[in-house]
Amino acid sequence: MKQVFTLLTIAFFSVPIFAQTSWKADPAHTQISFGVTHMGISEVEGKFDKFDGSITATKDDFSDAQYEMVIDVPSINTGVEMRDNHLRSADFFDAEKYPKMTFKSTSSKKIDDNKYAVTGDLTFHGITKPVTLEVWYRGQVKNPQNGQISSGFAISGNVKRSDYNLGSGFPEAVLSDNILLDIDTEFKKQ
Results as ranks from 00 to 15, higher is better:
M39D: 07
M39A: 13
G40N: 10
G40D: 07
S42G: 11
S42W: 13
V44R: 11
V44W: 11
F48C: 07
D49N: 14
F51Q: 03
F51Y: 14
D52I: 08
T56I: 13
T56Y: 03
T56A: 10
T56E: 13
A57C: 08
A57Q: 11
D61S: 06
F62A: 06
S63Q: 13
D64V: 06
A65W: 03
Q66P: 03
Q66M: 08
Y67W: 11
Y67Q: 02
E68R: 14
E68L: 09
E68H: 14
V70A: 12
V70R: 12
I71P: 09
D72Y: 12
V73Y: 01
S75C: 08
S75L: 07
N77I: 00
V80I: 15
E81L: 14
E81A: 15
M82E: 15
R83V: 01
R83N: 02
R83M: 04
D84W: 01
H86P: 06
L87I: 00
L87F: 04
R88L: 13
R88Y: 02
S89W: 03
A90C: 11
A90E: 15
F92I: 02
F93Y: 01
F93N: 00
D94Q: 06
D94V: 06
A95F: 11
A95E: 02
E96R: 11
E96L: 12
K97D: 08
Y98F: 15
K100A: 08
M101L: 12
M101Y: 05
T102C: 13
F103A: 07
K104H: 11
K104E: 13
K104C: 06
S105Q: 08
T106I: 14
T106G: 14
S107R: 05
K109P: 00
I111M: 03
I111R: 05
D112A: 15
D113W: 01
D113M: 07
N114V: 04
N114M: 10
K115L: 03
Y116G: 05
A117V: 02
V118C: 01
V118M: 02
T119W: 01
T119M: 03
G120D: 05
D121E: 14
L122H: 10
L122G: 05
F124S: 01
F124V: 01
F124D: 02
F124A: 03
G126P: 10
I127F: 10
I127K: 13
T128K: 12
T128P: 05
T128R: 09
T128C: 08
T132H: 09
T132E: 10
T132L: 09
L133R: 10
